[in-house]
């Protein structure tokens, strides 16, 4: 084989691998959409909103309790993790002594790699009994799921905020200090606005991760498909619903589950795309 032919063959195999990867996404999307379609045709998208409850056996497919459950759990996690993560990032970049800084950064990077099932395990055995003892039995609740998710997405939030803050030229902070701004005022009026886009990227990705997480939530949320009325109520998320029922679902029930999977996938992909957008604009000088 001539060198030129080898070159071409090389290029061709690289290109095929790239296209294969892209096709995998198309294929997964198509598969989920194809299985979800009959649910839309049979009942119409409205039925998922208007049916009063989720009783697949008797033909009511109200997804509202699960949609609200997913939103409640992820939003609670975001509300808890966003200030904590941002605070940790600010501490790391502007308060920590240099020795601590590297250590802290490394620790957060390692936290990001802990498998979610470990968090779920801890939530189930430590957090849930604590809530049951001090707040309300049985403890499996929106609060428990939100807390476990918050701890899970905290590193993501901290890493992205920290990267965004680290990318700001040091002169900006120095100039702010030279003008007599105190540390906190400089952070609030100069650095946080400058890092805004990067922080948004972190928020989007954290939210996507919280929405898509299944196992950790399933272990601690209680999984009752009902409209929650307080933070201490058990709740079932869309992803947990799929994981719990897919094994035995048939017919319309199965298509409805695929539809909910399609929903979660659409929302998380949208969030990931938004995060990519916001990151790209950040990179432009």
């Amino acid at each position: 084989m001539s060198r030129r032919a080898a070159d071409r063959l090389f290029r061709f195999s690289l290109r095929s691998a790239t296209l294969a990867a892209a096709l995998a996404l198309v294929f997964v999307t198509f598969f989920v959409g194809y299985e979800a379609l009959p649910a839309l045709q049979a009942a119409g998208a409205g039925a998922f909103l208007t049916d009063p409850s989720w009783h697949p056996a008797s033909g009511t497919f109200g997804l509202m309790p699960m949609v609200l459950g997913s939103l409640a759990v992820s939003l609670l996690a975001l509300v808890l993790a966003a200030p904590l993560g941002l605070g940790a990032a600010l501490f790391e970049n502007f308060y920590a002594p240099p020795v601590l800084r590297g250590l802290f950064q490394r620790a957060v990077e390692l936290l990001a790699g802990i498998p979610s099932v470990v968090y779920g395990l801890w939530g189930l055995v430590v957090l849930v009994p604590l809530i049951a003892k001090h707040l309300a039995a049985p403890g499996t609740s929106i609060l428990a799921a939100g807390l476990v998710l918050a701890i899970m997405i905290l590193p993501t939030m901290a890493l992205f905020s920290s990267a965004a803050l680290g990318a700001i030229p040091a002169e900006q902070y120095r100039a702010a200090s030279a003008l007599g701004l105190s540390k906190w005022t400089a952070l609030r009026t100069v650095l946080l606005p400058a890092a805004g886009r990067g922080i948004m990227t972190g928020l989007f990705l954290s939210f996507a991760r919280a929405l898509g997480e299944t196992m950790a939530v399933l272990m601690v949320a209680g999984n009752v498909p009902q409209l929650p009325s307080s933070l201490l109520d058990p709740v079932r998320t869309l992803t947990a619903n799929i994981a719990l029922e897919m094994a035995y679902a048939t017919g319309a029930h199965r298509h409805a589950l695929f539809f909910s999977g399609f929903l979660v996938m659409a929302v998380t992909l949208l969030l990931v795309t938004l995060a990519g957008r916001s990151e790209k604009k950040e990179a432009r000088p």
Binding site: A22, G212, A243, F258, T268, L269, L271
Partner: peptide
């Protein structure tokens, strides 16, 4: 390609 990491794992599961 980056979206492949964003697909919820439960979707990959089924």
């Amino acid at each position: 390609l980056e979206m492949l990491a964003g697909v919820p794992t439960v979707v990959y599961g089924f």
